[in-house]
Each structure stands twice: as C-alpha cells, then as structure tokens.
C-alpha cells in the first residue's frame, strides 16, 4: 500500500496521522471537560462545593497510586499486586494506630515500610524467579491478601482514636493535604523520570530490556526499584484511605472512584503510556485520573446501579487498551 503512494499523498497521510495522534494525546482534556459539563446538568449535587472537594480527594488518592504505578509500567512491569499492598498497608495502619497506640509519624513510617517490603517481595519473585511481572504480582497479591487477613483476623478495624483523620486531611491554603501529597508525588516522579540517570534507565529498560542489558543498564536493579516505588505509593494511598474512612478498608469490592490497580492501569493507559513500557509522560496521567474520578462520582450521584458503574469501568479499561495499541501501531 504505502509503496504506491506518491510523495504528495504520503505527506497528506503523514499529516492525517499527526492529527490523529494529536487528537489521541489531547482528546482526554476535551472529554474530561465535556464530561464535567454533562454531569453539572445531569447529576444532582454534582456541582456543589462539598462534592467538588470530594472529587478532588478521591482523585488525589487514585492519583498517588497511579504515580507509582506509572513508574512500574514505564519499566515494562505490569504490577497487579496493588490491591494486596493496599490491604497489607491499611491493616498495618489501623493496627498500629488503634490497637498498639503508635504515634502518627511512626504509624505512617511502618505502613510505608510494609509497602516497601511488599515491593521487595515482588522484586525477588520477578527478578530472581525470572517470571513475567504480570503473573508474578498476581500470585504475590494472593499472599499479601492472606497476610492482611491474618493480621486483621478478617475483621474491619475501626479507628476510634482521634488524630489520624484530622492530621491527614488538614486543609493547606483551603485544599486538602492529600491533594498536595499527590502533587508532591508527581513532581518527584517527574524529576525522577526526566532529570535523573535512574529515570533514563527506567525508560530504557521498559523500551528494550535486552538492549539495555547489553549496554550496561543495571536492569535487575531498575526493575526492583520500579516495583518498590509502585508498592510504596500504594502503601501511602492506603494510609490516606484508612484515615479518610476511619477504618481499615478491605478493598473487597472496588467500585468506581475507589483505588485499585484497574483504575491505575486504565489511567496510565489513557494517559498515553504503552502497555509494554518505555513510552509516556507522567503528567498526562493526572488528567486521566481526574477523568475516571469524575466519571465514577457523577454516575454514583445519578444513582446508577453499581453493576453499571463496574461495566463502565471495564469498558473504560478496554477502550484505554485499544487506544494504547492503536497509538503503538501509529508511532
């Protein structure tokens, strides 16, 4: 086909390709704004200060998970253990703060350490076991859920002690602190990926594992670090979610707007990342996260049955994957 095209036709085809790519890259902004406007008219209570703050908090929680998740995807590792890490960290937070009476900073530190441990565990299975991350983390997730179940005894731990929710959701300049934490995560992620040697290594490992290995990139270490970062942000999110709900969340049924790896994966793919690593810019994910949160929140306010919200979530992932594959084919 391409061989028969004249120079002029090629130029037009090239231009059309560029237009399509431009649309794919920036369409998400337009769609998000449109969705927002639609919900302002359709969903009751959507456009109220209280709900807007609500959306902001939900988006920030999903955004933090997505930030770390992005790093793992960029390194070519599809991390499916997010739910397991969230469960371990939420139970750790609730146990330490409520039952053992730890101070707030110590609780947060130990919850994050639990996340790091989970990430290292993933790293051992993926790197030393030489197993594809997608399957390896699916398996480790089972172990993590069991540990969370073991620690909590299968019970939801309610936090009666004061201080956790208040401290985590202090308003700074009128905006909840979780939003600031999210921005902080993205700034760190941006600097890490674009300004440091490690960032370049992460892109390289994801783009071509073999070539990176041969050119001296410490691929194993890069993969380990990427998995730890992914687990660390999941643990941080778990602390915030626990503080917000004032109880350990079990993440059994994840409905739209809540945090889990399906949301993170969808957001990352909608943000323009390749499923196979190596391509993408982290700041785009912010919009994708906002889009998914608004979608979930609006549908909930319209009193749409949970089943439909779940189906929409599934199709959002399907759409995101198709877009991602299309993009890969065009570039």
């Amino acid at each position: 086909m391409l061989g028969r095209l004249t120079q002029g036709e090629l130029k037009i085809a090239g231009r059309r390709r560029e237009q399509l790519l431009f649309l794919m890259d920036n369409g998400i902004y337009v769609v998000t704004v449109l969705l927002f406007i639609v919900f302002v008219f359709l969903a009751p209570y959507f456009f109220t200060p209280r709900n807007l703050v609500n959306i902001l908090i939900s988006a920030s929680l999903a955004g933090i998970v997505t930030a770390g998740y992005t790093v793992a995807i960029l390194a070519g590792q599809i991390d499916t253990s997010t739910q397991g890490v969230l469960a371990v960290a939420t139970v750790t937070t609730a146990l330490l703060f409520e039952e053992l009476g730890f101070s707030l900073p110590m609780t947060v530190i130990f919850a994050l350490l639990a996340g790091i441990a989970a990430g290292l565990f993933n790293g051992v299975i993926v790197v030393n076991g030489k197993i594809v991350a997608f399957v390896a983390t699916l398996a480790t997730q089972g172990v993590m859920l069991a540990i969370a179940l073991f620690l909590s005894g299968g019970q939801t731990i309610t936090i009666a002690r004061e201080g956790l929710q208040e401290a985590v959701f202090i308003r700074v300049f009128g905006i909840p602190s979780s939003v600031w934490i999210m921005f902080f995560c993205y700034i760190v992620g941006y600097v890490l990926l674009t300004q440091t040697k490690l960032g370049a290594h992460i892109y390289a490992t994801g783009a071509d594992y073999r070539a990176s290995l041969l050119s001296g990139v410490p691929v194993d270490r890069v993969i380990r670090i990427a998995l730890v970062i992914s687990a660390l942000t999941a643990a941080l999110t778990a602390v915030l979610v626990t503080a917000r709900a004032k109880q350990s969340a079990m993440f059994g049924l994840a409905i739209a707007g809540s945090v889990d790896f399906v949301t993170a994966l969808t957001a990352v793919l909608l943000g323009g990342f390749s499923l196979f690593g190596g391509v993408g810019r982290i700041e785009r994910n912010l919009v994708a996260v906002l889009f998914l949160t608004i979608l979930g929140n609006g549908l909930q306010l319209m009193n749409v049955p949970t089943g439909i919200i779940l189906i929409v979530r599934g199709f959002a992932l399907v759409l995101a994957v198709i877009l991602s594959v299309l993009r890969a084919r065009m570039t």
Binding site: V262, P305, G307, I308, L310, I311, R313, G314, L317, V318
Partner: peptide, 17 residues
C-alpha cells in the same frame, strides 16, 4: 482481565436489577 471486570459488572447489575 478487562472482560472479567465487565462480567463482574454484569453480575452485579443482575443483582441490582
């Protein structure tokens, strides 16, 4: 995986309806 999410949703929808 994506289809599984959709199927889970359909299951819940049947319960909702």
């Amino acid at each position: 995986l994506a289809v599984g999410v959709v199927c889970g949703g359909i299951g819940f929808l049947i319960i909702n309806l």
